[in-house]
């Protein structure tokens, strides 16, 4: 077991965090999925959320994204309760989940413009052009998304995040389907996103890929967030060993 003394000072975290999850619980009918979870996301930081399959990681992320209504608890975004202003949080988050969420019949550009419009972004055409350029999709902007490979779809997802300019990223297994180059590119994007004040919550099983980016690691176990600690406290090997213990 990792020393509990490594645990961060929970109270200090809460004071200056961008997103605060307080005692959130969720039960789907007869099944308890989350039981009183506390978590705080900081600016300029990435939090890695670990847990075995079915431990409620994705549900927690969906609750933060406002897709699932928690059975109990509150979420504060920049100090305000989000049940009162759900749109304020939703305009600040960017999501990558299992599905891309693009319309196959529309072109990549049209998709980006559509989501940009819903995100109330100004200067949209310019932003779309830049995002496509940065993600290397410039020559594909006018092609329908249904012709895209899954790797290109992922890149387009990153382009959407660039257009939406969120303050918080919720990433659910973002590395699946990314080749080596794309992975490196994605990590560079996350690095710069963090540097400009962004906050990231990531679920992944590829700890090696993202370990260098992590600042905090949180572990969901038995429906509860048992531990969260700083990543500088121990090596990647130690974490992976711990993770294997957990999922065994």
């Amino acid at each position: 077991m990792l020393a509990t003394s490594l645990e961060k000072n929970h109270q200090a975290d809460l004071a200056n965090s961008i997103l605060q999850i307080e005692a959130v619980s969720k039960s789907f009918g007869y099944r308890q999925i989350l039981n009183s979870v506390h978590l705080a996301l900081q600016e300029n930081e990435m939090t890695l959320l670990l847990g075995k399959n079915g431990s409620g990681k994705t549900t927690l992320m969906k609750i933060i994204a406002g897709l699932v209504r928690p059975s109990g608890g509150t979420i504060f975004f920049r100090g305000g309760d989000i049940t009162e202003h759900p749109e304020s949080l939703r305009s600040a988050i960017g999501v990558i989940s299992h599905q891309t969420g693009f319309y196959g019949e529309l072109t990549a550009g049209e998709n980006l413009v559509f989501f940009g419009r819903l995100g109330k972004k100004k200067n949209l055409n310019e932003k779309v052009r830049q995002a496509a350029e940065k993600t290397g999709l410039s020559q594909f902007v006018d092609l329908p998304v249904k012709t895209f490979s899954s790797g290109m779809g992922k890149r387009l997802n990153i382009a959407r995040l660039m257009v939406l300019e969120p303050a918080i990223l919720l990433l659910d297994e973002p590395y699946t389907g990314l080749d080596y180059d794309s992975t490196r590119f994605f990590n560079e994007y996350l690095e710069s996103f963090k540097a400009t004040g962004g906050s990231i919550l990531m679920i992944t099983h590829q700890i090696e890929t993202c370990f260098d980016l992590c600042d905090t690691i949180a572990i969901l176990e038995n429906k509860e967030l048992k531990r969260s600690f700083s990543s500088t406290a121990f090596s990647m090997e130690a974490l992976i060993r711990e993770y294997h213990n957990l999922t065994r």
Partner: peptide
């Protein structure tokens, strides 16, 4: 639907 919050 199965018993759960969605059903209700």
């Amino acid at each position: 639907t199965t018993y759960g919050e969605q059903q209700a």
